[in-house]
């Protein structure tokens, strides 16, 4: 939304915007209540989401939290919680571009430095699965595409 507003203000410099150019604002207003509910729900269930995802990932492969001699469970929780909060804001203001610019481009280089891309890949895959149990289908349809963007950005670049 913020990125779209910024683009709009540049594009309509010196003229009036067309109805088509303003459509995204109408769409946003229509979706706002759902976005706000989803944002509040994410805030409410964050810690349980993290716990469910952690348990599921540990059962899949406990080595996902180990790299070299280091154990990363604690770091994983802090990183995933921070990312979920960015995801929640991206849902609220409908702005995946800002999420990408402020967090994902930087975070993918840091995860790469620590060789944690596969863990990130599984994390945001599992989160999409567990989140569907706690959110309504319309809420999940707002959150899951953003989680998928996170998974594709932070996961391994080649299969």
């Amino acid at each position: 939304m913020l990125s779209q507003l910024k683009r709009l203000s540049l594009e309509v410099d010196g003229r009036y915007a067309s109805d088509a150019e303003l459509q995204f604002m109408t769409d946003y207003v229509k979706s706002f209540n759902l976005r706000l509910q989803t944002y509040q729900k994410l805030q409410e269930i964050e810690s349980s989401l993290l716990q469910q995802a952690y348990a599921k990932m540990r059962s899949l492969d406990p080595m996902l939290f180990v790299h070299g001699k280091e154990e990363y469970s604690h770091k994983w929780k802090a990183d995933t919680s921070r990312t979920l909060r960015y995801v929640a804001v991206a849902v609220l203001i409908n702005d995946p571009d800002t999420l990408r610019e402020r967090l994902l481009l930087w975070f993918q280089t840091i995860l790469h430095a620590f060789g944690m891309e596969q863990t990130a890949n599984v994390t945001y895959q599992v989160l999409q699965e567990v989140i569907k149990q706690d959110l309504t289908p319309p809420q999940a349809s707002l959150v899951c595409p953003i989680l998928e963007l996170v998974r594709r950005s932070l996961g391994p670049t080649s299969p």
Partner: peptide, 12 residues
């Protein structure tokens, strides 16, 4: 620090 992390941090 982890060397690759250090370098990424330098270049950001």
């Amino acid at each position: 620090a982890n060397l690759l992390f250090l370098l990424e941090t330098w270049w950001w």
